[in-house]
Design a protein around this nucleic acid. Structure first.
Length: 259
DNA sequence: CATAATGTTTAAGA
DNA sequence: GTCTTAAACATTAT
C-alpha cells in the first residue's frame, strides 16, 4: 500500500540505480506508461539518474536540474532493483535497463499508477497541486493548512493538495494516536488537537519508514497491527470499529477516539 | 462468487 | 462559483 513510507522505501531502492548509465527501456504494458520509445531515445538514453526525490506519494528520478522520470504507485505499485539475470517480478509493467547489467522494475498488480517523464519538475508539482510533503512541514505550516478546512479530520489529512503523503491506512493510525474521531470536523478541533496531529503525523510516518513500511512490524500498541473490525483496542477496553468515510473504510476505537 | 483493497480523478451535491 | 462528498476507474486476493 504505497503511502508516504512505502514510497520512501522505493526511493531508497531507486538510489541503488543512481549514476548508472541508462541503456534501454522495456515496456510490458504501455497502457499507463507515459514514456514512448522515441521519447526515451531522445531524452533518457545514455543519461543517468542523478538524484532521487520524493514528494508525498510521488517519486522523482532526476536526470538534470528540471528533467525527471515521475513514478506514482497507485494502490498496488512496487519498485525493485535487480540484476539483469534475475527474472522480472510478476506484474512488472516497465523496466529501466542500466549499463551495469541491472534493471529497475516498476511493478503494479492493478492498473492504477503510472510512469511518465517531465521536462520541468516544479511545473509538474504545481500542475498536480501537491501540498508540501508530510515530513517536510513544520508545525506552524501544518496547522495553518488544515485549520480552515470544513471537512472531516480524516478527509483533510488525506487531502494531497493540503499535505501530501498521508493515505487511508496511516491516517487511521495518526488519528488513533491523536485520540481524534475520524469524522470529527476540523473546525471543531482544538489547538491541542492540531498540535497532536502534527506530532503524531511525524511520529507515525517516521516509525513506519523505520519498519520498512510494514504495518505488521509496528509496535503492538499501535492501531495498524490490530486494524480489523472487532479486535481489542490496544489502548483501552474498546473494540475496533469499521466505518465508511467518503467511500473508504476507516478503523478506529469508539471508546478512546471521541467526537 | 461476492467483496474489499492501499490512490486519484471525475462528477455530483450542497 | 466554491467547497465537500461520493462514485468510478481496473484488477487481484480472500
Amino acid at each position: 500500500m504505497p503511502e508516504l513510507p512505502d514510497v520512501e522505501i522505493y526511493r531508497r531502492e531507486a538510489e541503488k540505480a543512481k549514476n548508472s548509465g541508462i541503456e534501454s527501456f522495456e515496456i510490458e504494458d504501455k497502457k499507463f506508461i507515459g514514456i514512448s520509445e522515441s521519447e526515451f531515445n531522445k531524452k533518457l538514453k545514455d543519461e543517468r539518474f542523478k538524484e532521487t526525490t520524493r514528494r508525498g506519494k510521488y517519486l522523482f528520478l532526476s536526470i538534470g536540474k528540471e528533467k525527471a522520470v515521475v513514478m506514482h504507485f497507485g494502490m498496488t505499485g512496487d519498485l525493485k532493483y535487480l540484476k539483469e539475470s534475475e527474472d522480472a517480478p510478476d506484474y512488472t509493467k516497465c523496466s529501466f535497463v542500466f549499463k551495469n547489467k541491472h534493471k529497475l522494475h516498476y511493478i503494479s498488480k492493478r492498473k492504477l499508477g503510472h510512469v511518465e517523464f517531465t521536462d520541468n519538475l516544479e511545473d509538474f508539482i504545481e500542475e498536480k497541486e501537491l501540498g508540501p510533503d508530510a515530513l517536510e512541514t513544520n508545525e506552524k505550516e501544518f496547522v495553518s493548512l488544515l485549520k480552515d478546512k470544513k471537512s472531516m479530520a480524516k478527509t483533510a489529512l488525506t487531502d494531497q493538495s493540503l499535505i501530501s503523503g498521508i493515505g487511508n491506512v496511516y491516517a487511521d493510525e495518526i488519528l488513533f494516536q491523536s485520540k481524534i474521531h475520524p469524522k470529527q470536523k476540523t473546525t471543531d478541533l482544538s489547538d491541542a488537537d492540531f498540535k497532536s496531529l502534527y506530532k503524531n503525523t511525524r511520529k507515525v510516518l517516521e516509525k513506519a519508514i523505520e519498519k520498512e513500511a510494514d504495518p505488521s512490524k509496528l509496535p503492538k500498541s499501535y492501531l495498524l497491527p490490530n486494524r480489523e473490525e472487532g479486535n481489542d483496542c490496544p489502548r483501552c477496553d474498546g473494540k475496533i470499529k469499521k466505518i465508511k468515510i467518503s467511500g473508504r473504510s476507516g478503523y478506529y476505537c469508539p471508546t478512546c477516539q471521541k467526537k
